[in-house]
Design a protein around this nucleic acid. Structure first.
Lengths: 346, 346
DNA sequence: TTGAAAGCGGTACCAG
DNA sequence: CTGGTACCGCTTTCAA
């Protein structure tokens, strides 16, 4: 620290703790301490520093701080398809919860799961403290997290053999509840409007529904291929209606948007009455499922509790890296709408 | 740099350029150069470094880099209400465009506009290169951006007297087009389902609609208070229908979600036929506006072009800070649905 | 082309 | 409680 500070070399540098120190007439260390939560600074010093800081508009440089503390106070959130209508709420809640706890959110909104690699590469470089992931990762990718000792939490994805923590909605239970209700109401023929084959969430819901129906002795279940989207559902229903198959009593849809697409198409293109001729059920409890045109019978995911849990769990593991992974499963909430004839147990 | 490196002090440090240098048998500077685009490194050196880096799983620390270059390669995106159904697409597009250009996105999803201050404070500390803002800022807040020389771009908000750049959809023009079409089709009595009073986007649309109607000699326009949401629209319609006013020929809604709420309520609660008894128009062109239950007549915002422009403009200004602010206005696209009787000029 | 050394803006440990 | 000083991991002159 010689004195290469002859005024006149006014580069566009932003104001640093040294500037504040000089103006306040204290050491740079003193300034630093004023911004550290549990530090011991006298009232007088603190006051001088605060005045100087305000005068200069000083804000500590988070990057420099992170460099030395090796804590960036930021987490990455990876979401595979934001346009899914279910994720915006998740993201909003995550973002707000993290914000309240002073954590910045780096968003990676993937258009396709193939972009995962580039996202991860950015994540490694950026020294995030943890990652919340609502996309599928390969085993190797998951391993890299533990190698780098970065806490990873899956949101509604399987934590493949507990290599990471996870927060999930109980997909199987939700589907089960719906199927039981439909069976109890006397439905005997069923169709299953599925999601993309590579979606774990989707297949869990589908498998559970299939299992519940088969247990009840239902043997033929028409399977329709969808992709979580309105259009996918519409096309699937069109294909089905143009075949000569007869209408099932109920259609179990992999998610709400599919269910809405199915309802709309059945009603508006084929004049099918819902729920009189066909019962339709969904899954998720997204906003539009409550719109009066649909009034969908569905399972609502407790998004707020799930996101809060996700934030708690990941931050706990940032604080205490040796903490074991944990999986928390939340039951969905049955929403009785008017899109299905259904009898609940109680 | 003495040698305090007797093996055994294995702290959980991550692998640095020094580690790579040692393994590759070159200087740390050489390693650094290999990661700088236009640097001069011999083939041989580069090869050695690359092998070592791969072996160690080295990734440069972006924070350290940013500290010295004073470029974080990250931008902040501020969005006031992500649950708006219009914003998720915007956010997804912004995120993808930035990602492709190697820029990280820090997300600030505000629940209420009062959280702006805390978001800004985080933004200052984080040394972002630029900010895209879809929320209202005060004059002082805008000024702080120019004081700190951080490029700011508003998305669909007025850039108050050109203190910042902006990308907007032409709200006034869109409303105008819709009103003209409705007038041409012979509608003579109108209701305006408004947004929150403090929304600039909303009032622009409303003012333009009002002006177009008044120019055509329409004098009484029923104004209904909404808040951009389905529920707000539903409640407004209920209040209206429970008054003894007679149905207008057309309802001009401030956005699609309001329009959907209005349609649903009119149809399903009051048995009003749309568009036979009432025409309904919206604004935005969100996904659900195309669902067959609604098939909304609306103005679609060219989101992809707008977000691309936003990304281009902000990054241009990061590269070239002296660039003047700019405002780019995009015309919306008329979407002829079946929710309104409407005649277009051509 | 290469390596040495001086920082970027903080934090943390140290003696006083 | 305070100031001095060694770093965090990288980029960037500057000589060699």
């Amino acid at each position: 620290m010689s004195e290469p500070k002859p005024p006149g070399s006014d580069r566009k540098r932003s104001v640093t703790s040294y500037d504040v120190a000089r103006l306040a007439g204290v050491s740079q260390s003193a300034v630093s301490r004023c911004y550290k939560p549990g530090a011991s600074v006298s009232q007088k010093t603190r006051a001088k520093v605060e005045r100087a800081a305000k005068a200069l508009g000083y804000q500590p440089n988070a990057l420099a701080r992170s460099l030395i503390t090796s804590r960036s106070n930021s987490v990455a959130v990876i979401i595979s398809n934001l346009t899914n209508l279910y994720y915006p709420e998740v993201l909003a809640q995550l973002s707000q919860n993290f914000s309240q706890r002073g954590i910045r959110v780096l968003l990676f909104a993937l258009e396709s799961e193939s972009e995962v690699d580039s996202a991860l590469s950015q994540i490694w470089q950026y020294q995030v403290d943890g990652v919340v992931c609502a996309a599928k990762l390969t085993k190797d990718q998951i391993t890299e997290f533990s190698d780098r000792a970065i806490p990873l939490l899956f949101y509604n994805r399987q934590a493949g053999s507990h290599a990471a923590s996870a927060v999930c909605c109980d997909q199987a239970d939700g589907s089960h509840v719906l199927c039981e209700g439909l069976l109890r109401a006397g439905h005997t023929s069923f169709a299953l409007l599925k999601g993309p084959a590579d979606s774990v969430v989707g297949t869990e819901r589908e498998d559970s529904a299939r299992a519940a129906l088969e247990r009840a002795g239902i043997e033929t279940i028409t399977e329709l291929k969808g992709d979580f989207s309105y259009e996918g559902a519409r096309d699937a229903i069109r294909r089905f209606m143009e075949s000569d198959a007869s209408l099932p009593d109920a259609i179990i849809c992999v998610n709400d948007v599919s269910a809405i697409g199915a309802m709309d198409t059945l009603r508006n293109e084929f004049g099918v009455a819902i729920p009189e001729q066909v019962s339709v059920v969904g899954f998720d409890g997204v906003g539009p499922s409550g719109w009066s045109s649909f009034d969908l019978t569905t399972i609502r995911q407790p998004v707020r509790r799930m996101t809060r849990a996700a934030v708690d769990m990941i931050l706990e593991r940032v604080e205490t890296p040796e903490l074991a992974n944990e999986k928390r499963v939340f039951s969905g909430i049955f929403m009785r709408g008017n899109s299905a004839r259904i009898d609940m147990a109680d």
